[in-house]
Nucleic acid binder design. Structure first.
Lengths: 333, 333
DNA sequence: ATAATTTGTTTAAACGTTTAAACTTGTTTA
DNA sequence: TAAACAAGTTTAAACGTTTAAACAAATTAT
């Protein structure tokens, strides 16, 4: 039978023969210098014995703190999301915080809605992976003064708080690495989108090539999410047709790499003409490919940690401080 | 500047020139037959205008309901987890519930801890993917009468609430399908574990073969999580060595299939000797493989939906009812 | 010996809702 | 014409904490 009346402060007070207030003080470690050690001991013992669990609602009502933060993801089923979630969760555990998770499915309305829902649940702060065209709602959030931090994605020239990967550096360093190994004709496969972090990746590729004096006419493929597979395939075909000396392909996301791999295996790029593959983001399926795949590994753990730490300091009163952190990852493989 | 004093019932009452109680009644749709329509209208209008958001703590304190359920996953980064999460989330949205997510990383202590944390956060119910050897803590939960339901995994011969895939059927039907297509020598790659649902998959394979009079001596590979790659490779090698007529491989999880694919591409199983591949669970990387991969698709959406619906009815008072639902998925590809 | 301070504890208000019960005022019934 | 009822609204207690302020007793200072 459920409904075993929850034990509360009152019960402990009775058991230990003291007032409710004293129990609260002891259990929260307040006024420790004033309270007689034996009394404190008696109270703690009683709390332990009765298996006291504070009532979250009552506590929250008084303190206005939920010890919960809201995490707004763009797509929960994306491996990237889950890894960043894990990083955040790990760090949050250190701070005794919990996490409410929501997913926008790249939909701006859902983003606004989730922020509302989370705030009405009194989360203490928000970590957000903003969707495309969500500058307006983020601006509102920013101006409200509510503690938040963007992660992974950001916007051009804004005063928002964010912790992101150096997206320019991802492709810039990857491209330079390829060039250093003698590759001169590199195809770049990316997404057609106005998400700022993706356009930064494109810029990284372009500038690395320019620096090396490499012509990139018709070397860039921009595929739309709706027809990813088809457009990637067609794109690679085009490049190959135009440049018989194509010797590397750089993919700006793991999803694109997935499409590319399909193509690469089918046409045996690794044997026929040693076209090297490189990607931004890692994925567990890379090792399916017979020849090694290099990739840029985003510093997710660091990003998660930084984001949480910033949020904690913001929540704990440092209202005015802002953060705009761009961290670098490294090439692997 | 943050701290724009939250608007509360009191403010609306003032604005609409009525008592706080009446505001509460109107906003919660109580006593609608008694309240003058114009007053109700005035109150609703004021609430809207002031952008009232009820205080979650105060509400919860009175009603003892959080409209939140806790979801305990085994491994957040596993695609399977995220898909089931999405299914649950979708259904929960229909009921205006939110979801607190935690991950045990297959660790029994963490499971116990998460249940405690969630309950102290006053979640109204729990959906749990139990870890190995967690019968004890689940038994305690069950006996406490708290609303919960296991999902995906379950235990042999227990009275617990669960909604699971018919794991026996996964491999039984998959094997039968292979046999029907003329395959007579099938290798089965599975995990070495005592998780009940995995052992059910083994049983499915065995019984399907027996039914067809197929000898399966040395046809089963059981790999440990720690050395998955290596053991899968070695296992397949062994089977191939013993049976030159091997004509299909059945993998009991997508992770195993990932290892298998690596092997299959490297040794060109699809050309050389037309060894067909089949898996339980789908994964986005299957289409990398040059020849089609079949798989058993678990009815995740259905499972999530059933689990939530059961939990809702349990929470809404139907304390005594239990559920033990075994749903079937289908072969795809 | 009295005042001031320290030590240890209690009192009581507050947080923002919900909800049973009470209270008006107006209308019907006998 | 008083009693009963109905319609519409308010009063006030409760939920389980936290915390400032008050209090009592013991100790120290003057």
């Amino acid at each position: 039978m459920y409904k075993k009346k929850k034990v509360q402060l009152k019960d402990i007070a009775q058991e230990a023969n003291v007032s409710v207030a004293l129990v609260s003080y002891v259990l929260n470690g307040r006024h420790t210098n004033r309270i007689k050690p034996e009394t404190a001991e008696r109270i703690k013992e009683a709390a332990m014995r009765l298996n006291y669990q504070p009532n979250y609602f009552a506590k929250g009502l008084k303190t206005q703190k939920s010890y919960t933060i809201g995490l707004v993801l763009a797509d929960l089923t994306n491996p990237f999301s889950t890894q960043i979630t894990r990083a955040i969760e790990n760090e949050l555990n250190n701070h005794q915080y919990n996490i409410l998770i929501g997913s926008t499915d790249e939909n701006g309305d859902k983003l606004r809605n989730l922020i509302d829902v989370f705030r009405s649940r009194q989360v203490d702060g928000l970590i957000i992976l903003p969707t495309e065209n969500s500058e307006k709602v983020i601006t509102e959030l920013h101006e409200s003064g509510f503690p938040y931090v963007l992660i992974d994605r950001y916007f051009r020239d804004t005063a928002f708080n964010f912790v992101v990967n150096d997206n320019y550096f991802t492709t810039f360093s990857a491209t330079k690495r390829l060039i250093k190994r003698g590759k001169r004709k590199i195809g770049f496969i990316t997404l057609k989108t106005n998400l700022f972090h993706i356009s930064e990746r494109k810029r990284g590729f372009i500038e690395a090539c320019e620096e090396a004096g490499i012509d990139i006419t018709d070397c860039i493929v921009e595929a739309t999410l709706e027809q990813l597979d088809k457009e990637v395939r067609a794109g690679i075909n085009n490049i190959k047709q135009k440049y018989s000396n194509l010797d590397a392909l750089l993919f700006s996301t793991d999803n694109l790499m997935l499409c590319g791999l399909q193509y690469a295996i089918k046409y045996k790029l690794y044997v026929e003409n040693r076209i090297e593959l490189m990607a931004v983001d890692e994925a567990r399926f890379y090792n399916i490919y017979p020849s090694p795949i290099q990739y840029y590994k985003q510093p997710l753990a660091e990003m998660g940690q930084k984001a949480v730490q910033f949020l904690m300091s913001k929540i704990e009163g440092n209202k005015s401080q802002t953060i705009q952190e761009i961290v670098k990852g490294k090439l692997v493989g």
